[in-house]
Design a protein around this nucleic acid. Structure first.
Lengths: 225, 225
DNA sequence: TACTGTGAAGCCTTTCACAGCC
DNA sequence: GGCTGTGAAAGGCTTCACAGTA
């Protein structure tokens, strides 16, 4: 079962978790893993893990499991994380700086090659080895550095405008950290980072605990990111 | 249809989006909104919005919609965001500092009242008005400041240990930004921030675009956070 | 007419059951 | 025995259709 159109989104969201677990196992020197190993670690159903992995095209060996390195590569290739996408980040505030500081985006197929802002206080300064440009230079830089992805870390108010500028500059995909829907043409790929979504789940759980919950408890929620 | 045990998790994840839209509408001075207003903005099905909202216990008026302020309050109350939970943050790196810099967590029912780290370089310094403590003081501070939530922004390696310390210190819920599954007792609520999950969805979309996709295009994905 | 509220249908994801393999 | 792979059943979420209301 390989890439018939469209992979379930839940599967896509779990794949990074598998990579994290697998890389951890890889450090121990083991050569193969089984889906029960993975599922034990992430508290998932082994069948589900097998189905998810099968989307990437890998095949395992009965009685042994999956070859570890090949499995990692298979998932990374499937997600496009084996190739490097050039990205720019717009909005060098707290969160923006934090993302610029991540030196490990290359493991996720992304390389941030430029940063932009409007504030005089930031433009021209150097953050994590990148000089911050004024946003007026966006189009020019996007073209010259072959940037395909935009990381949007501006305040909600500015998000729509900046997203528009990204699109006219030729950016194809936007990773949106602003708490706003963007409504762009359907040829632009948008994915929202949804920080508060996870907080909502957490908060609601906390609420629930007080009201009921005398002792019984299958209440842990999610796989790790 | 109010709070029969367990609300669908997708609903929980959408509720913050509604709040964001509603607060934006509130600025215009309008008194009520309909689910079609909301669904237009977020590109969702109006029925789904109605079902989601009904979980919070609000009732709307046919022909008019929902009273705006009451609706916002209803969602916030439902999520527990009307009351303030004391939280501490452990791991004052890039991301940790960024979260400490958010002054708007109070809108989400959270107040970060303490920060911890192990690095000599950070301990004792002041970040966003908070003095950073050494993690050895965790238990003491958690007790004295009545901290219920832990925000975990340490490197993956340290995550499990720190999570354990949070639990023994009396913390009830952990918002985990580390890319690791935590495996704690079932009386502890854990929610993983899943940063890379959204990136995986984005990356995969980008991949898909190159290979196929001549023109047709219902490919935009998600509601905003 | 313009909305809410809801039972039922449809669809997608997860889980189960089991065949195949070493 | 311990593992993969997969068809089929179960479960949950979304969408549809429509009744109710002002």
């Amino acid at each position: 079962m390989a890439d018939h159109r469209s992979v379930p989104e839940p599967t896509l969201r779990r794949l990074p978790c598998y990579i994290h677990v697998l890389k951890k196992v890889d450090l121990t020197g083991r050569q193969s893993v089984s889906t029960s190993d993975i599922s034990r670690e992430l508290k998932l159903d082994p069948t589900q893990v097998r189905k998810d992995l099968s989307y990437t095209g890998i095949v395992g060996k009965p009685r042994v499991g999956y070859p570890l390195k090949a499995l990692i590569e298979s998932i990374e290739r499937f997600l496009g994380w084996d190739e490097c996408t050039h990205a720019c980040l717009v909005g060098v505030g707290h969160l923006g700086s934090a993302l610029l500081g991540y030196d490990r985006f290359n493991e996720y197929g992304v390389r941030i090659v430029a940063a932009f802002d409007t504030s005089e206080a930031v433009v021209g300064s150097v953050v994590s080895d990148l000089t911050v440009f004024h946003i007026d230079e966006l189009a020019e830089v996007v073209e010259s550095l072959n940037i395909e992805m935009g990381i949007l870390t501006v305040p909600a108010k500015a998000a729509k405008d900046v997203a528009g500028e990204m699109v006219t500059s030729g950016i194809k995909a936007i990773w949106n950290f602003a708490p706003t829907a963007l409504e762009l043409g359907s040829d632009i790929i948008v994915e929202n980072a949804q920080l508060y979504a996870t907080l909502a789940v957490l908060s609601r759980q906390m609420r629930g605990r007080v009201k009921t919950q005398p002792k019984p408890s299958p209440l842990i929620i999610n796989p790790a990111t």
